[in-house]
Design a protein around this nucleic acid. Sequence first.
DNA 1: TCCGTCGCTGCAAACGATTGCGGTAGACCC
DNA 2: GGGTCTACCGCAATCGTTTGCAGCGACGGA
Lengths: 358, 358
Amino acid sequence: MQRRGGGAGGREGPGERTIVTLEDVARAAGVHYSTVSRALDPDTARQVNVVTRKRVAAVAKRMGYQKDMVASGLKRGRTHTVAVVVGDLGNPNIGPLLRGISNRLEAAGLMPLIVETQNDPARLERIVNHLLSRRVDAFILTAARLGDGPKLRRIRRHGIPVVLAVQSVPGIRLPAITNDDILGGALAAQHLLALGHRRVAQLRGPPDIYSCLQRAQGFSQTIAAAGATEVVLRSTAPMGTAEEGHHLMRQLLDSKRPLPTGIFAHHDLMAFGALSAAEERGLACPRDFSMVGYNDLPNVERMVPPLTSIRLPREELGGLAAEVMVKMLSSADRPPASRKLAPTLVVRRSTGPPRESR
Amino acid sequence: MQRRGGGAGGREGPGERTIVTLEDVARAAGVHYSTVSRALDPDTARQVNVVTRKRVAAVAKRMGYQKDMVASGLKRGRTHTVAVVVGDLGNPNIGPLLRGISNRLEAAGLMPLIVETQNDPARLERIVNHLLSRRVDAFILTAARLGDGPKLRRIRRHGIPVVLAVQSVPGIRLPAITNDDILGGALAAQHLLALGHRRVAQLRGPPDIYSCLQRAQGFSQTIAAAGATEVVLRSTAPMGTAEEGHHLMRQLLDSKRPLPTGIFAHHDLMAFGALSAAEERGLACPRDFSMVGYNDLPNVERMVPPLTSIRLPREELGGLAAEVMVKMLSSADRPPASRKLAPTLVVRRSTGPPRESR
DNA sequence: TCCGTCGCTGCAAACGATTGCGGTAGACCC
DNA sequence: GGGTCTACCGCAATCGTTTGCAGCGACGGA
């Protein structure tokens, strides 16, 4: 039947794509193809005599045999593929995360199948079904939102291992590898407090992102514990963008009370949006107020002002999520525990002592 | 045999992963499973009576049937998967490109399998073999370097459609969707010339990246045609980094001749590295010289100074590459022609008239 | 010598979907 | 009424690999 002729693409040359199968190798080596299968699989290789094994291996190599992972997947029910669902491929945070995941999975003989939901719940639904139909072995979900609980439960009901990365959802019993965003918020607060700020503001990210709630919690707790006063601006947008930061900062500037001296934005982009809103009113950072961002975007040190921000261990987080996934796939024990990774504060020039104290 | 028990991951609940097959649906609908197959495939659905077809569809839906793409792939020799090979997932240019590819492929029922070579030729070799073993339908390669010719030919020899994106290799007969980097270089040159610059410099990117050669060519030609003088600094690093820009700028500053008034860097990061090298000598941009970058990295407008740069249509390019791929897969005609996409110049504050003319 | 064991290999049935071919029943024509 | 045609559906082989089972020598012990 179809010999998988290359069709398009190959022009000059013999080009016709011919697949070397176990049977071809077997014929050439003078054994049954089941023997070839055994000889080539490290797990079963010791079942076959060492001299035939070597001969088979040599013939296979000479003929350029490559196991057909599709057929193998069908037979074994394992495709050695892990679906990695991300919200937005354009997000600069996502690259290092994916690299961490890829590297760790590759070491375990797995391959990530990366798909983007574009933060559209309907797409997520479709995509998950598609991936199930492709028989992926597991899911790594990196963009869960608070409302996704039911969806996550539905995926889990398929009996496929799932781990959450970066974003978690409270109340759901799935292993989650996340940043310690409470700590992140606390670090921002401590930094501002240590500089002497007593009136601070917080520009919150999307309310359905759990890590933003955590950032808020860590920040507010620390501020409150120090007896300082805080004003909170809540975003309603689905993403922490510069526009949203601009918008919230405008609200802050338009309010009657005096401008807080220290501001914590849930995202670097929001921070920059806020900075431009302030500049429009003739205010400068860090002269008139300090600003702490979150995420430590690439090249943020080259911006003006160089932004003090919270740095997250992205690649490490990805690697760890993959690590957990690999464990789940290899042993059927109870799922491993969740982990939180500590972020760090990177101090740059957008923060300083409050004006009053100078 | 194995019923694909979920093993790890599913705890509470029935969890056991059971696959609904054609046969299950057939039994429930009272027909042969081949009929179910035909009824559910739009291409063959008209072969089955409309009432049975509807009944089968209803039963399939009720039972939650999902075609097993693995089995289908084995039988049809088409996995509906396209390998997308990128050099560096951390590169901020890559996100939009991938989104463009993903969206277009998805519309055609294909799925990208994204892998990263980390710019390591040995890895590329391994990865390609692995992907062939997974029976991907095609390749989109986004990080080809000049020395990759033989490797590309080897891939093509497998008879699988290949398109190059972003990076091309001269002399190889593969469809390539690239930026018009000659034009990009020319735009940079025209901009500097129009501002009145007559002594310019060029900080070149890696010599084995074709698009850098093109940028160089477009720039130098335009400069020469205007009778202006140019000095060229050549990088030997494999990537256009800030460090490399810093290094080249140092060379320029250390040379005996007067500093050129206009500088073109082959990458925004190189431009920033160069700017910091200049600042170390007390020189400021655009006061003492103008700087044009390339790639228009995200947030580059927030940097200091906001960088004049060449913007590339990344997402569009990705979509076009996928488009070409889809065409190649659907019709066995001769491969479609290559395409070049025009970049645009984005003028910001890092360029201005030369000092002498003020 | 005979039986049990062990090491190696072949046999054949899966995995789930696709598809050429043939069969059956009804419609239709002559 | 017989023949032909069409529409529909079932049969079974097939994609390439995996794997339980059985066969078959050789060998050792009784």
